[in-house]
Amino acid sequence: MPGKQQSFKGNKSYLPSKPYTVCGNEMTWRKSWAKNWDDVKYCSDACRKAAPRKGNQ
């Protein structure tokens, strides 16, 4: 179909992505993160627990 715009259609390469703050793994945009995309920092509970804590030394 000439002139048809490319869209998601199950291909994640069209979605935005960024590295997780803590572990550096690549995260791909998810619909459930649409409202807080900038606040997502952890890929799992294990990653969250491994994050450095403020004030704990």
Rank of each mutant, 00 (worst) to 15 (best):
R53W: 00
Q6A: 14
G10I: 07
Q57R: 08
R48L: 09
W37G: 10
K54V: 15
Q6N: 12
Y42M: 05
G24K: 00
N11M: 09
G10T: 05
N11Y: 02
S13P: 04
P2G: 13
Y14I: 11
D39W: 03
A51L: 05
N56D: 12
N25P: 01
K18Y: 03
G55I: 05
A50H: 00
W33V: 09
D45P: 07
K18D: 06
K41N: 11
G10H: 01
A51D: 03
S13L: 07
P16M: 06
E26Y: 02
C43R: 02
S44M: 02
D39E: 14
G3D: 08
V22D: 08
V40W: 02
Y14D: 06
N11S: 04
G10Q: 01
N36C: 09
W37R: 01
R30E: 15
K54G: 08
M27V: 02
V22M: 10
P19G: 03
D39P: 00
S44A: 07
N56R: 12
K54C: 13
P2T: 11
K9Q: 15
K9L: 15
W29K: 02
K4I: 15
E26Q: 12
D39Y: 01
P2M: 12
D45A: 15
P52M: 07
R53G: 05
K41C: 12
W33P: 04
L15A: 09
A34W: 03
C47I: 05
K41Y: 01
S17Q: 07
D38K: 05
L15G: 04
S17G: 07
L15S: 04
N11R: 04
T28V: 15
N11A: 12
G55K: 03
G24L: 06
P16F: 05
K12R: 09
W37K: 02
N25F: 05
K4C: 14
Y14G: 11
P2A: 12
W33E: 15
Y20F: 12
K35I: 10
Q6P: 13
M1P: 03
R48P: 02
L15M: 05
C23K: 02
C43G: 07
G55Y: 02
G55R: 00
L15N: 04
N56Q: 13
D45R: 11
